[in-house]
Design a protein around this nucleic acid. Structure first.
Lengths: 236, 236
DNA sequence: ACTACAATGCTAAAAAGTTTGCATTTGAAG
DNA sequence: CTTCAAATGCAAACTTTTTAGCATTGTAGT
């Protein structure tokens, strides 16, 4: 499974003190989903915060023309639904379970009561929202500026880096196409180019990144924006 | 001037109690900028929150190949720089003044002191970040799914709706190109198509939307995603 | 009214991506 | 070891967008 955005976004479970996280989970109902089951649907009016307890969820949208776009993959500790809590709008994405999963569902009223008492909650959600924002802006810039070849390499790189122990990314070319928003044919073409440059090796249901550092250098070389380094932030 | 994202995002000045806003502004230094002057540059490490006091700023990025992409236009009451406050990363965008402007600049240390005391501040910033997030996600979906013709019409519509008193949008086709991330030739083509359908009328340095409702209907007709309506949010 | 520059219009060739349809490969289930 | 469905590979026609260059139009300043 491959993901567009979540790579550098912290999880709610990492940002909250364990006790606060436990309290929050205590307000929730745990719901189990099976492979492919819909967790939320775009347009769903029921508000609430959800936290992934186990398994994986996929967020995306299906267009009226049948086109599918995957936006994000949510793993254990990730939260979603914040938007429905603070804005009078329904769910913005279809979310379905990828394999079996368990999700904490916190109804809006209960959440808001805790939210009013615990300023930490707002800070954690703020941090997450700001990180997501940043990821989105950087990705949108790439989307408008960079060719598919680059974007594909970048996506493979960021996902390969998340499992440094192995050099294999397990994903279908179809999934890559949904994620990058292009056709499978186009994905095939650019994957072949990357393979010809010996940056990756294509397999059945998988892609092998033999030399992570070479791929990283290749991407860095072609980056059109100044990379942002976490330099020591000045005091003022 | 035309804007991609800000249309439906509330301003900090609208979300804070007047007293709190005044306190925050009291911590700031007011800095004046002249036409074209750089307010921040991508990579700038100096953190702080900024609020537009008067005038307009443009946020965008210039690629190493010279390509320009405009991300957002900031007007009076809009804030920026939140990201530098909570994450150890430098500025993510070039921001320059469009015409003369004045900006409240709040240094990080002063801001954080107030932030710790006033939970309202976190809530307001959270609301803004979530709205921005939503705009970005919807736009990214459009970017991947919809043809330029549609995206252009949508952009013109949302900007025309912000000045309902007049039916004129003052912008250069170059600016449209920067905003949509395409070439001027492509913009010219789609604008001509829209004009041929009598949805807009092209002028020198301006675009006239004679019939806002017809344009709105045209866009709604072609929308591939279910529109999100602010239905009364259920209690749970 | 003339000039000069900025903005817009237009064209043709090339590049990138899509669609459609079919061939080939792979791995898992009998 | 077959068989079969899923996944991948491939090709051709088509559409969209870019690049580059130049022509035309609008407007402010003189």
């Amino acid at each position: 499974m491959i993901d567009l955005l979540n790579a550098s976004v912290p999880k709610l479970s990492e940002l909250l003190k364990p006790e606060l996280l436990a309290t929050l989970q205590g307000l929730a109902q745990v719901i189990q989903y099976h492979e492919g089951q819909l967790v939320h649907q775009r347009g769903d009016p029921k508000p609430g915060l959800s936290i992934v307890k186990a398994g994986r969820l996929v967020a995306g949208n299906i267009g009226m023309d049948g086109s599918i776009l995957t936006t994000s993959v949510l793993g254990t500790g990730d939260c979603f639904g914040e938007f429905t809590l603070f804005v009078g709008l329904p769910r913005t994405h279809d979310i379905y379970s990828h394999g079996a999963s368990e999700v904490y569902q916190v109804p809006r009223s209960r959440f808001m009561a805790l939210f009013a008492q615990e300023p930490q909650l707002a800070e954690a959600l703020l941090a997450i929202a700001l990180y997501r924002n940043h990821s989105l802006l950087e990705y949108m810039d790439n989307l408008r500026r960079q060719p598919l070849l680059y974007r594909t390499a970048q996506l493979l790189l960021s996902n390969a880096k998340r499992h440094p122990e192995t050099n294999v990314i397990e994903c279908l070319q179809d999934q890559l196409a949904f994620t990058l928003g292009v056709s499978r044919v186009s994905i095939g073409k650019v994957l072949n180019k990357l393979q010809a440059d010996e940056l990756i090796q294509l397999g059945y249901r998988k892609i092998i990144v033999n030399d992570l550092e070479r791929l990283e250098a290749w991407v860095a070389d072609r980056n059109l924006l100044m990379p942002l380094t976490a330099s020591g932030v000045g005091s003022e």
